[in-house]
């Protein structure tokens, strides 16, 4: 068995750090914690971490400038930025600065773990194959065709984009915010359940004629593809 992935956590508040650490360790990661921005930069530059979880509001140095310096120093590990600044505009700032993902506080532990896993997968396997397989689902990327348990499922272009994105993150939670950004190319916080409506249509198409669902709603977080194969 290969060594467990190592995460570098840069967070100044011990209480939050403890929460994050606990969640990540439960998720099977090894966590190195730095409570100081400059020290975190040094440790990150030394390498050896599979991902970096970085708080945006550190007392002596801004998280945004840490990301910029990490990128300037060609540190390859993907960065997940945590922040109490969680409005859409704040998230765009963080991503523009070079963070690979941005998670607003408060977040739930499983969401953090899911995001970190997604980041690492993206980092190690950036190009999806021509055919993506997960559970009963089979997605032909180029032909934009979808099969469930061998049966063709007709999807609208947008529905296909949603499913394709979920296949990229198969097994992990994708949030509404991620879907909005990656599928619709929009950054803002809708006040109504517009994403859920599109998601429920996709679900209806995928589930028609089958007993069990392939997409589960994770309350307060987002959606997840289910990998189980129906008996």
């Amino acid at each position: 068995m290969s060594a467990p992935p190592r995460i570098l956590l840069i967070e100044d508040e011990a209480a939050i750090a403890a929460l994050v650490r606990e969640a990540l360790e439960e998720g099977g990661f090894v966590v190195d914690w730095c409570d100081h921005g400059e020290e975190g930069l040094r440790v990150a530059a030394a390498g050896g971490h599979d991902a970096i979880v970085l708080d945006r509001m550190l007392p002596e140095i801004e998280g945004l400038s840490i990301v910029r310096r990490l990128r300037a120093a060609a540190v390859a590990a993907p960065v997940l930025m945590l922040s109490a600044l969680a409005r859409a505009e704040d998230r765009v700032e963080g991503l523009d600065a070079g963070a690979d993902d941005y998670l607003g506080k408060p977040f739930e532990p499983f969401e953090l773990v899911a995001r970190v896993r997604a980041l690492m997968r993206r980092a190690t396997n950036p190009l999806p194959g021509a055919v993506m397989l997960f559970g009963e689902l089979e997605v032909h990327v180029k032909a934009r065709r979808v099969h469930r348990a061998g049966q063709h499922v007709a999807l609208s272009p947008r529905e296909f984009d949603i499913l394709k994105f979920m296949m990229d993150h198969a097994g992990d939670v994708v949030t509404r915010e991620m879907l909005l950004r990656e599928v619709w190319g929009l950054n803002f916080d809708p006040q109504t359940n517009v994403i859920d409506v599109s998601m429920s249509r996709l679900r209806q198409r995928l589930d028609e004629g089958f007993a069990g669902p392939v997409i589960e709603t994770v309350r307060g977080a987002g959606f997840r593809l289910l990998g189980g194969v129906a008996p």
């Binding site: 508040e13 929460l19 109490a84 600044l85 506080k105 408060p106 977040f107 739930e108 532990p109």
Partner: peptide
């Protein structure tokens, strides 16, 4: 910061 961090604890 001061609202979200405490909410974070409650939520967790």
């Amino acid at each position: 910061h001061e609202t979200r961090n405490p909410l974070m604890h409650v939520s967790a």
